[in-house]
């Protein structure tokens, strides 16, 4: 037995050492760094070379994080580490680290713009229009929130997904109002507003644009409320319902690519799920972070984030999906909004 314990201890020690070696790899060398020609960027560059790799907490798809870091390496060449974090925990982690004064991320790219906006209000995130990020003054106004304090770098417009085995293209609903047609009663799968701020936003958009009665009638059409879009879209593909709302084209598109009978209609008047960027007020690498933001908020950076067609996103410089004239930026979510939406939909 003792020899067994000794052997187990030796194995555990070996594993622990191996584990320790796994920790903390990241960043990159600045060997290929290129000093920008823009004088403001160049000034930041000169200071940034003495800092460590800029660190980003991101909700972006991993493929987009890769495009972004590759694009930045090509444009500037300074190191950047982009860490994808689950959308359910990015806010908690960022806020907890800020509270513990252990800020790791210089930049936050969150799918919850309400959170970023609130952090600006608290001084935990710097208002972008006061952050001295070169080129930000040219950033398109329709992608600036709160007067420019928070930039949205990408938006996935919300629409209506449907199962092509259940409904043919001609009869598929194309507007939100079509969903109240009695023939869809009990055939619409919906994602619950309980699980995410962005879903509260889209239901709130419908409530504000069409009134509480509309949302109540819409709730009565639901076959079921799912906790997450992922589970709901898989159920739609299987034929558990004929229609899914709210959803993004990216989700149904990914399924359709694998042969699932899924399609997507984008109503002209809609809102979306934007991703917002923020600069931490306690950023460990403030100059490198501002330099990276000047790239992220440029046309090239936006191309990296919005240039993948199948992800069905819209960017500030007219990349990706074209948003209709009636597209509306989502409002900030408050507890009252969430309660109002839940009460009208009947989800509590």
């Amino acid at each position: 037995m003792t020899s067994l314990i000794r052997r187990a201890a030796a194995t555990a020690l070996t594993l622990a050492v191996t584990g320790a070696l796994l920790v903390g790899c990241g960043g990159g060398a600045a060997e290929d760094a290129k000093r920008p020609r823009d004088p403001d960027q160049a000034a930041l560059f000169d200071k940034a070379v003495d800092e460590k790799a800029v660190y980003v907490y991101s909700n972006l798809e991993e493929v987009l994080n890769k495009r972004l870091s590759d694009g930045y390496a090509k444009a500037i060449g300074l190191p950047v580490t982009i860490e994808k974090i689950a959308s359910s925990s990015i806010n908690t982690r960022f806020a907890s680290e800020a509270e513990a004064r252990a800020v790791r991320a210089d930049i936050l790219v969150s799918a919850d713009c309400s959170f970023v906006r609130a952090q600006v209000g608290k001084g935990i995130v710097v208002a972008m229009n006061k952050a001295n990020v070169p080129g930000y003054e040219k950033y398109p106004e329709n992608f600036k929130l709160d007067g420019g304090a928070v930039p949205s770098i990408q938006t996935a417009p919300y629409g209506i997904g449907y199962n092509t085995d259940e409904i043919n293209k001609a009869e598929a609903p194309t507007t939100w109002d079509d969903l109240l047609d009695p023939r869809w009663k009990g055939r619409i799968l919906m994602t619950s507003p309980k699980g995410s701020a962005t879903r509260v936003q889209v239901y709130d958009f419908l409530l504000e644009s069409r009134g509480e009665r509309f949302l109540r009638d819409l709730g009565a059409q639901a076959a079921r409320f799912y906790p997450d879009t992922g589970q709901a879209v898989a159920a739609l593909a299987a034929g558990e319902g004929a229609i899914l709302i709210p959803t993004a084209g990216q989700v149904t598109g990914a399924g359709a690519k694998k042969g699932a009978p899924l399609a997507f209609n984008l109503p002209e008047d809609t809102t979306g799920a934007p991703l917002c960027a923020g600069l931490s007020a306690q950023a460990p690498n403030p100059n490198a972070a501002r330099l990276f933001l000047s790239y992220l908020l440029s046309k090239s950076g936006s191309e990296a984030v919005n240039g993948v067609e199948e992800l069905y996103t819209a960017g500030p410089f007219d990349q990706g999906v074209k948003l209709g004239e009636k597209y509306k930026q989502p409002a900030t979510v408050t507890e009252e909004t969430a309660a109002k939406v839940g009460a009208a939909l009947g989800t509590g």
Partner: peptide, 26 residues
């Protein structure tokens, strides 16, 4: 996994959650 893992420190739970969120049940 959902609170501490990331693409820099992936664990199985994090990957399962990511594929679940995308609806990639297969």
């Amino acid at each position: 996994a959902s609170m501490l893992a990331s693409s820099r420190q992936p664990v199985v739970g994090f990957q399962l959650l990511d594929t679940y969120n995308k609806g990639e049940f297969a």
